[in-house]
Nucleic acid binder design. Structure first.
Lengths: 199, 199
DNA sequence: ACCTGAACACCGTTCAAGT
DNA sequence: ACCTGAACACCGTTCAAGT
């Protein structure tokens, strides 16, 4: 007896969306086994498709990794936006919340974050969002607001943004590379934040 | 006519030191073509040796990369030590010199530094030196000295060390990942240093 | 349009064998 | 002690061919 007819005309062989399935599998492999273990052939096996199929959706391995990095940036931006909305009890608390979110993301998604930062160094198009959007834009807005209300020290806001970003990113890197235990992160973030707000 | 006798008894087949030759070739390949292109087989070809030979000196590919990271840490420590010796015109200048050296190292040896930082996350033994030695020790000494003479703000020296280290490392990461043009690094370093020294 | 499957040129790792 | 060379199980990428 025949299979029930698929709802309509063309239907992908195995997936409604092989592309999405590959990305999901890739992120899981990245998390569990590290970037070196992410191979197109293995992802094809995991999603039940022949080893040549992924090339329809990603020109090569790097294209898949770039797409994964873009997913990571979108998620980080969401998390930071959510954290700032939650911490509405003052400017310094919001700044701390941004940092804490960044550090937590770095700890929970170490390999993914590494991929996101490394993608910027390659030749191809950078999957990182522009400074005007994504996770960094929120920090920029926060800094301008803090300077307007006098809760943040004065000075070139762009340079201040970069220093704050560098410090938070550096703390995240120290925690993520286990040079600093995660439990110490909050104290470090508080110290650093106080450094910036204290005029 | 016979080859001139080698000076004495045993002589390695092709090298006085295959290990060193492999590391040199690896660093060059790392710099010119990126970490993904560093393969044991290719290094064996470059050094004129069979593809199985490297395993006598490095158990596997990761062991070679770890050794390369250790070389990097040693060189970074040397450069930072040299920079602080040179900049003997006051505490703040020394602190700036350390940061500038770190950033320059990151720009000149991007892939190597990435390797150094990534090695800490793997399972095996970390090639990074202890906090009591290597590049980070110099920063610790500098900070203690700065606090004693009152040129650096007071506070837990270990936490201050970590924040300063994080900030410098973060600036280096921003420059290295091209989120900040190299020409802007010095201004950023000066701003950050002033933030730390100004009580 | 989307996927298959063979083909090619690469890997890392292991291991008996040579010197 | 140190290296060779074959063997094995993997890769990424390409491309004619199928549905």
């Amino acid at each position: 007896m025949p299979e029930p007819e698929p709802s309509h005309e063309w239907k992908p062989y195995h997936h409604g969306n092989l592309r999405a399935a590959l990305l999901t599998a890739a992120e899981q492999t990245l998390r569990e086994r590290g970037i070196g273990e992410v191979s197109l052939r293995d992802l094809a096996r995991q999603t039940g498709v022949s080893h040549g199929a992924p090339s329809r959706h990603f020109r090569d391995r790097q294209a898949l990794l770039d797409a994964l990095a873009a997913v990571g940036y979108a998620r980080l931006a969401d998390e930071i936006a959510a954290a700032t909305r939650k911490a509405d009890d003052g400017f310094e608390a919001q700044l701390r919340a941004v940092a804490a979110t960044y550090v937590r993301f770095a700890v929970d998604n170490g390999a993914l974050l590494e991929l996101m930062l490394a993608a910027g160094k390659a030749e191809g198009p950078d999957p990182a969002p522009e400074a005007s959007e994504g996770p960094y834009a929120i920090l920029g807005q926060l800094i301008r607001h803090g300077q307007e209300t006098g809760e943040l020290r004065p000075g070139d806001p762009e340079r201040l943004r970069l220093i704050i970003l560098a410090t938070f990113q550096g703390i995240a890197a120290l925690v993520s590379s286990r040079q600093v235990p995660p439990g110490q992160a909050d104290a470090l973030i508080s110290d650093a934040t106080a450094l910036f707000t204290r005029s």
